[in-house]
Design a protein around this nucleic acid. Structure first.
Lengths: 189, 189
DNA sequence: TAAAACAGAATGAACGTTCATTCCGGTTAA
DNA sequence: TTAACCGGAATGAACGTTCATTCTGTTTTA
C-alpha cells in the first residue's frame, strides 16, 4: 500500500475509535508504522491529513449511495434506492458511520464544507428534490431541510441499531427507513 | 450575581461563540472577571464546569418546551405545542441553540447523558409517543427514532433560519415545522 | 555517491491545574 | 473606638503535560 494511503487509513481508524482530539499525530504515526516526521512529508499539517481522511470517506459514501441509480427511473424509486444504499452502507461499515459523526462536527471540516462547492452526492439528491417538487410530490421546502430529514433519520437509525444489539435484525427494516424518509418530505393527499 | 453563576454564564457565552476547545479556562476567567484559580474553588475540573453549563442549558430548554402543556389535551395538540415552543425558543435564543450544538457532541457531555437517567423533557415526550402509538396515531418505532426526527428537524430549521437571513420571516412558518414533525412520525391512512 | 525518504528525538506553544500569597470582611482584645 | 487578628475567598504566576511541528542523523534508492 502507498505510504500516504497507509497514513490516511491509520488516521481514519483512530479518529473513528477515539475521536479527533484523542488521536495525536504521534499515535497515527505508530499505527501507520512510520515516524511522526514522515507524516509531514505527505501532509503539511494535521488539518490537511484530516481533510484527506474526510474526502476519501465522502468518496466511499457517495459511491455507495449512488450505486445502481437509474436516471430514467421515477423520482420515488430513485430516492428510495439511494436511501437504502446509504442505510445499508452505514450499517455494514460502522467505522465509516462513526467517522462521519466525528468529522462532521470538527471545525476544520466545517470550514472545508463551506469552501467546497456542493458535492456530487448533495447536488444529485438536491436536483431530485427539485424535480419532485415540480411534480407536486415533495414539499416545497429548502433542500437543506429535506436533506437533513433524510440523512439525519438514517444516521440516527444506524447509530441506534449499532448501540442496541438485535435491534437491527428484528425491528429496523428497509420499509421502516423508506417510510420515515418518504413520509417526512412528501405531500400527503 | 453569584460567582459560580457568573463563571457558568461566561463559559456558556464563550463556548457558544468559539466552541469548547477554543475556550480555555484562562479566557473563561477573564470574561467572568476573576482569576483562573477561582474557577477551581467552584468546579474541580473544566469538565465539571462544562457539565454545569449543560445542565443549566437543559433546564432552560425543558422549561420552555413544556410551557403551557395541558395534560388533559389530545396528543396531537400537546405535541404541537411542545414543538412550537421548542422551535420558538431556539429561534429566539440563538446562543442556546449554538450552545447545544457545541455541547451535544462533546465527549464529556456524551458520557454525562449516559450516566443520567432519562431527563424530564425526554421522558415526557416519550410517554406522549407511547400514548400516540396506543391510539394508532403514531408509527410503531423506537422512541429515540421518533425523537430524532422531531428534534433533528427543528434544530436544523433553526440553524438554517439563522444562517440565511430573511428566511425565517418569509419561509419557515409554524405550519411548516408542525407539518414536518407530524408527517414524519404519524400513521398515514 | 548523491539525493530522496525516513524515523524519532527535540522544540516550543498551549493548556489545565496547583499553590504560595494577597485581600477583605468580620471578630476579638485592649 | 481602635487596632490587632483571623479565616477563607480570590489571585495569577508557575508547573507539568500534551501535542503539532521541526530538526538531525540515518537509511534507502537510483
Amino acid at each position: 500500500m502507498d505510504k500516504s494511503e497507509q497514513i490516511i487509513e491509520a488516521a481514519a481508524e483512530l479518529i473513528a475509535l477515539n475521536g479527533l482530539q484523542a488521536s495525536p499525530v504521534s499515535m497515527v504515526a505508530k499505527h501507520a508504522c512510520c515516524g511522526a516526521g514522515t507524516i509531514y512529508r505527505y501532509f503539511d499539517t494535521k488539518e490537511e491529513l484530516v481533510e484527506a481522511v474526510y474526502l476519501q470517506l465522502m468518496q466511499r459514501i457517495t459511491r455507495a449511495t449512488l450505486a445502481g441509480d437509474d436516471p430514467s427511473g421515477d423520482i420515488r424509486s430513485r430516492l428510495s434506492n439511494m436511501w437504502l444504499n446509504l442505510f445499508r452502507y452505514l450499517s455494514d461499515n460502522p467505522r465509516d458511520a462513526a467517522l462521519i459523526d466525528q468529522l462532521s462536527v470538527a471545525p476544520a471540516i466545517c470550514e472545508l464544507k463551506q469552501r467546497m462547492a456542493e458535492n456530487e452526492l448533495q447536488s444529485g439528491v438536491h436536483s431530485l428534490f427539485e424535480e419532485g417538487r415540480q411534480q407536486g410530490l415533495i414539499k416545497d421546502l429548502p433542500n437543506e431541510v429535506l436533506g437533513i430529514y433524510v440523512y439525519g433519520g438514517i444516521s440516527t437509525l444506524v447509530r441506534l441499531a449499532h448501540k442496541v444489539p438485535g435491534l437491527k435484525e428484528n425491528t429496523i427494516t428497509d420499509d421502516m427507513v423508506l417510510g420515515l424518509c418518504w413520509d417526512a418530505i412528501r405531500i400527503h393527499h
